[in-house]
Simulated assay, not measured.
Amino acid sequence: MLQLAGLHHVAVICSDYERSKHFYTQILGLTVVGEVFRAERQSYKLDLAVNGHYQIELFSFPDPPRRPSRPEALGLRHLAFAVADLDAAVLHLTEHNVITEPIRVDAQTGRRFTFFADPDELPLELYEE
């Protein structure tokens, strides 16, 4: 059996690098681990940490193709972030003009969660622990 050690990172390609960089660092509060511009690809790569752990790579590419990205679309469903206080997190997003869906309750765990989107409509989730 394959022995996976854990999830290393999630890669996100954005359409407007500065807008997405602001969203992920200033609104969601992720920390920049490293940033590089790859001239040969006309691409930025921004390494981000969630709570001190390197987990997200934000890329820019010239004219990337669009793909369906609602939570129930085929393929990767969404990226979920754990939060201790869902109400405070939703309030923070609302104060930054980020629209969240109504809060739901997970029928299996009884935990509350909500969905919202990044600047490119990538579905994101906040899940209360």
Score class of each variant (00 low, 15 high):
2 L>P: 08
3 Q>P: 01
5 A>S: 13
6 G>V: 07
7 L>C: 08
8 H>N: 14
11 A>P: 00
11 A>V: 11
14 C>F: 01
16 D>V: 03
17 Y>D: 00
17 Y>I: 09
18 E>K: 00
20 S>M: 01
22 H>D: 03
23 F>R: 00
23 F>I: 00
25 T>P: 01
26 Q>K: 01
27 I>W: 00
27 I>H: 00
28 L>F: 07
28 L>E: 02
30 L>I: 02
31 T>F: 01
33 V>Q: 05
33 V>N: 02
34 G>Q: 11
35 E>Y: 05
36 V>M: 13
36 V>F: 12
39 A>H: 05
39 A>M: 06
44 Y>D: 00
44 Y>G: 01
45 K>E: 13
48 L>Q: 01
49 A>C: 05
49 A>V: 08
50 V>H: 03
51 N>F: 11
51 N>C: 11
52 G>A: 10
53 H>K: 15
53 H>N: 12
53 H>C: 11
54 Y>V: 10
55 Q>C: 14
55 Q>W: 04
58 L>G: 00
59 F>E: 04
59 F>P: 02
60 S>R: 03
61 F>N: 06
62 P>Q: 05
62 P>I: 10
62 P>F: 05
65 P>N: 11
65 P>H: 07
65 P>Q: 09
65 P>R: 15
67 R>V: 06
67 R>C: 08
69 S>P: 02
72 E>F: 13
74 L>P: 01
75 G>R: 08
75 G>K: 12
75 G>H: 06
76 L>N: 09
76 L>S: 08
77 R>N: 14
77 R>K: 14
77 R>Q: 14
78 H>G: 10
79 L>S: 06
79 L>R: 07
80 A>L: 06
80 A>I: 09
81 F>W: 10
81 F>Q: 04
81 F>N: 03
82 A>H: 13
83 V>E: 09
83 V>C: 15
84 A>C: 06
85 D>I: 15
86 L>Y: 02
87 D>L: 05
87 D>M: 06
87 D>N: 13
88 A>C: 05
89 A>L: 08
89 A>E: 12
89 A>C: 10
91 L>I: 02
92 H>A: 12
92 H>R: 15
92 H>M: 09
92 H>K: 15
93 L>T: 08
94 T>S: 12
96 H>S: 04
97 N>K: 13
97 N>Y: 05
97 N>F: 07
99 I>K: 13
99 I>D: 05
100 T>P: 00
100 T>Q: 05
100 T>A: 10
102 P>M: 08
103 I>F: 01
104 R>D: 07
105 V>R: 07
105 V>Q: 12
105 V>A: 08
106 D>T: 10
106 D>I: 13
106 D>A: 10
107 A>T: 11
108 Q>Y: 10
108 Q>H: 12
109 T>E: 03
111 R>G: 02
111 R>M: 09
117 A>N: 10
117 A>C: 11
117 A>V: 14
118 D>P: 00
118 D>E: 05
119 P>F: 00
119 P>Q: 05
119 P>A: 04
121 E>T: 14
121 E>W: 14
121 E>R: 14
122 L>N: 15
123 P>A: 14
125 E>Y: 09
125 E>G: 02
128 E>G: 03
129 E>R: 13
129 E>N: 10
129 E>T: 15
129 E>Y: 11
